[in-house]
Design a protein around this nucleic acid. Structure first.
Lengths: 178, 178
DNA sequence: TGGGGCATGTAAGTAGTTACATGATTGT
DNA sequence: ACAATCATGTAACTACTTACATGCCCCA
């Protein structure tokens, strides 16, 4: 992941057809942001860098008096994307504040520990609801749909794990009390 | 997560007892790195910042002729940690290269799509093995053990999901071929 | 006597977010 | 006329990684 970062999000988005920077950002916010976020501050500069490298081509495509540049993948860009898809991956990076809190929650009173776990579950349920809303829109097909299925089922699993852990923790608390 | 970042990893680590910067880094690499990484370049400066803020206290604790500074939580530091534990969280941030690849793998030939999925599973199996190795060391207790259980079971789930998705994809490929 | 682990640090670079600025269009 | 949305951008900032530098100790 070192070099690039946002590069492949853009090449991937353009592999579905020409898009403007704005449209790429919308696509990211509706889908990849759950596993790969990107901001305007990355997208616009990167689009120009990729054009200079010959991987994408921009064409003016104004909507009324509103200027717009839509980019499309060049053959070189498609080749780069496919090469990356078949390369070994760098795994994943996760920063999960809820898990970090659970990890250190021994510092609290036993009852409060349970609160941390409940808050973790609420977080997961919240994301799960967002993913289900995306699913109801029913836009995704093929591998994007596969990834959405992964997200929904994973969050269902996480919510269920939290529930079980809550019962375990609550049970231990009772034992200690008795 | 804006302000701080590494702050709570340090406060949390010190809530288990006094530690040097080096020891904190070891703890991070053996445990929290799966959901919250930190480098020396963050830890040492942050330790001095936290000391200046009165949240931790450093004491010289040399090992032979080898100098060492061990830090411990001050009451103010413990208070800060507990306040954070009970605060609402900012959720999680994930950058998962394997999922991103799967998401865009339609750009490949159908057979190659399956390769991307298999590579994703291999990645997850690899992390799962790391987590199981940690489990075999049997160091974790209480909430840290809970989090390790979460990690192992989640990765088991993810590996299983990949297996099923591989079969689904392989099945579709056959249908198209017939 | 030399490699590996302990221990502390920093400089330089990269990546990413945030907040702002601009201006046109569409719908109410 | 106003708000919302389309559309493009940038400057300043913060966070984080990487690679390096130093030096000591222990053990084979």
């Amino acid at each position: 992941m070192k070099a690039g970062g946002v590069e492949y999000v853009i090449l991937g988005a353009l592999s579905w057809g020409p898009r403007s920077g704005y449209e790429i950002k919308q696509l990211v916010d509706k889908s990849t942001r759950f596993f790969w976020a990107a901001s305007y501050g990355q997208i616009y500069p990167e689009l120009r860098r990729l054009e200079a490298a010959g991987l994408v081509a921009g064409a003016a495509d104004p909507q009324g008096g509103r200027r717009r540049t839509r980019y499309s993948l060049t053959p070189a860009g498609r080749e780069r994307l496919c090469a990356w898809l078949l390369e070994p991956s760098a795994g994943y990076e996760l920063r999960d504040e809820g898990l970090l809190k659970l990890f250190f929650s021994r510092a609290l009173e036993p009852g409060e520990e349970l609160e941390v776990l409940r808050a973790l579950r609420a977080d997961r349920e919240n994301v799960l609801e967002q993913l289900r809303a995306l699913d109801r829109l029913g836009v995704a097909r093929a591998t994007p749909a596969l990834v959405l299925d992964y997200g929904i089922r994973k969050h269902e699993w996480m919510v269920e794990w939290c529930r079980e852990a809550e019962q375990r923790l609550a049970g231990e608390a009772k034992e200690v009390a008795s």
